[in-house]
Simulated scan of single mutants.
Amino acid sequence: MDDEPRKSPKPRTLDRRGVALKIRARPIIRPVRLSDQVLESLRNDIQSGRTAPGSRLPTEKELTESFNVSRTVIREAISRLQTDGLVIAKQGSGIYVADPMEVTRSFRLGLEDSEQKTSIREVYELRVGVESEAAALAAIRRTKTDLAHLEKSLKALSAPNDFDRGVDADVTFHRLIAQLSKNAAIVRFQEFLASVLAETIKVARGNSARQAGLAETVLDEHVKIFEAIAAGNAEEARLAARHHLVKAQERLNLHKS
């Protein structure tokens, strides 16, 4: 019997088939987004009365320096305050704390977490319709000055930048197209959508940065939109904008949702 090969003891994890091992795990807590932190701080100041109705908020540059965050973060927070009816923008003057007795709460998308896959998909589906038509109108109505601003934005988009600057340039490019449409309703809707738009662009650009050659493909899609608008070809501009947004959905696997 001593000459018989001894069988190695089975690992303890296999002795109890079907019984899951007990591990010490703590729930993973998602970090609070910077825009949420800025939003909460500003909202507390307004709702507590520390910032009175009619008061002008600090400039975007001042807020950026005070909170030590990017301009994109500040724009997201301000946009959400506007959505909540807590502040109003006065052309050429700035952002002011709204009088709650005079402001009607704005329409809300109801996307509480714009990082959720369903929310991102729904925003992109909405963008396809609005931005495709905005691009078509921009091709018809743009001026030489408009094209100069859009080209400058495109160059900023193609320049090597840090992540936040890239997101900011991307958001600016799409916002300018809305402005070039000369349709006030589209412009206002784009402003309303600004906070979730920035979040979805962050997700898309983060995905592009992880895949070799993808950033160049995305840039080329933006170039084609610009070229169609510059050429005054409404149908090509509409198709180029639609193609860009549909491909963005595919790259994020949103079209399968």
Rank of each mutant, 00 (worst) to 15 (best):
V97R: 03
G110R: 07
L180N: 00
R33W: 09
I78V: 02
R165D: 12
G94F: 06
R75E: 11
S66Y: 15
E4V: 07
K61R: 12
R26S: 08
M101Y: 15
R210F: 11
G54F: 04
F107E: 11
D162T: 04
E235D: 13
V203Q: 08
T83L: 10
E151D: 07
E4F: 08
V128N: 09
E102G: 12
S195G: 13
L126Y: 11
V97I: 14
T104K: 14
V167N: 05
A185S: 10
E131A: 05
S41C: 09
K90R: 15
A139S: 06
V196I: 08
A234H: 03
V123S: 00
I74S: 04
A159Q: 11
D113W: 02
A212K: 10
I78N: 01
T59I: 09
E133K: 08
K7R: 14
L252H: 08
L214R: 11
D3H: 06
R17T: 11
A204T: 06
I23W: 08
A209D: 14
I23L: 14
D146G: 02
V97L: 07
S195C: 06
H255K: 13
V38F: 04
V171D: 11
S41K: 13
D84R: 14
D164C: 00
I28G: 05
V171L: 02
R205N: 12
A159T: 09
K202L: 09
L57V: 04
I74L: 02
L193V: 08
P27N: 09
R17Q: 12
A159H: 04
A184W: 04
L34N: 14
R24C: 10
V187T: 05
I74Q: 01
A237K: 03
I177P: 00
V103S: 14
D2F: 12
H149V: 07
F192M: 10
K224D: 04
P160G: 08
Y124Q: 03
S79R: 04
P160K: 07
S70W: 05
A194L: 15
R80V: 06
S208D: 13
A52K: 13
K117G: 05
R238K: 12
T59D: 02
A77F: 05
R142M: 06
V196T: 08
L57D: 02
K152R: 15
E125C: 04
V171F: 06
G94R: 02
H255T: 12
I23T: 15
Q37L: 09
V196N: 03
R75N: 03
N161S: 14
F189Q: 12
D164W: 07
A212N: 12
Q91G: 06
G206D: 15
V103L: 12
E115W: 14
E151H: 14
L180F: 11
I225Q: 02
Q211M: 10
R24N: 15
E250K: 15
T72F: 01
R205H: 07
V38P: 00
A25K: 15
V167I: 10
P58C: 02
E40R: 06
L63P: 01
R33M: 08
K144Y: 11
A52Q: 15
N68I: 01
V130F: 09
L109N: 10
A248D: 07
G166N: 04
E216D: 13
Q179I: 12
G92A: 13
S181F: 01
I28S: 10
S119A: 13
A159V: 03
S181W: 00
